[in-house]
Computed example of a mutant assay.
Amino acid sequence: MTWFWFLSLLKVDLKLDEDFRITFMTKKQKGLVEAIGEIWKNSEHCNCVRHLYANLKKKFKTYEIRNKVWEAAKATTVEDFNRVMTKIKDMNEKAHEWLCEKPAEQ
């Protein structure tokens, strides 16, 4: 089974056209983001913060920035997001660099 096939059937079952705006939250399953973009051109994609932090924690063996990662994810303005990201940088520069590689809008 492919994501394209699955999402095509989901689109039909839900009776949605390609102009329907929808946001998908994923944990980076292979091929899923590409299939979403093909089927729903106006869709948005977000990463699951829990999985993002789990990967960060595994890579950097850091626990102290957990609350700051969640605070950044919940930021409602660019200024608030940048303020929290600066705090993360002060706590763990390598983790900050890793997070900055991810699209902020996701």
Rank of each mutant, 00 (worst) to 15 (best):
T62F: 03
E44P: 00
K94R: 05
L56R: 03
G37W: 09
K11W: 04
K58H: 14
I65R: 00
T86G: 04
F20M: 03
K61M: 05
K27C: 12
A73E: 08
E71M: 08
K58Y: 15
W70T: 08
I36T: 00
C48I: 14
K11S: 02
K59H: 10
R66P: 01
A95Y: 07
K30P: 02
K57R: 14
L56N: 02
C46K: 01
S43P: 02
Y63F: 15
E34Q: 15
L14P: 01
G31W: 15
Q29K: 12
A95I: 03
I39A: 05
E44Q: 09
K27Y: 15
S43N: 03
C100W: 11
S8M: 04
K94Q: 05
T23G: 03
C46W: 10
I39K: 01
H96F: 14
K11C: 04
H51S: 11
G37K: 11
D90W: 14
D19N: 13
N42L: 11
L32K: 05
E44Y: 15
I22M: 04
H45K: 01
E93W: 11
W70A: 05
L14D: 01
E93A: 09
A54T: 14
K58D: 11
D80S: 12
N42P: 08
C100D: 05
K89M: 07
T77I: 07
E101Q: 13
I22E: 02
F4L: 08
E34V: 14
T26G: 06
K61S: 07
T86K: 06
Y53L: 01
D17I: 07
V69E: 11
I36V: 08
E93M: 06
C48G: 07
E18H: 15
V12S: 03
W5R: 00
E44I: 08
C100T: 09
F4Q: 02
T86C: 02
K27H: 14
A54L: 14
C100Y: 13
M1G: 14
F20S: 00
T26H: 04
S8E: 05
G37A: 04
E44L: 14
E93S: 06
E34R: 12
D19T: 10
I88G: 01
E44W: 14
K102A: 09
L10P: 03
Y63S: 10
I39W: 06
L10C: 09
C48D: 13
F60V: 10
T77P: 00
W98E: 01
W98D: 02
K41F: 13
K74H: 13
A35F: 11
E44D: 08
T62Q: 00
I36R: 00
G31M: 09
T86R: 00
A73F: 15
D80C: 10
Q29I: 08
T26Y: 10
A75I: 10
H51Y: 15
K94P: 02
N67K: 13
K89R: 08
K59R: 12
C46L: 07
E38D: 10
K59G: 06
I65A: 01
D90G: 07
K15F: 14
T2C: 11
G31D: 04
E79F: 14
S43M: 04
I65N: 01
F81E: 04
N67Q: 14
K27F: 15
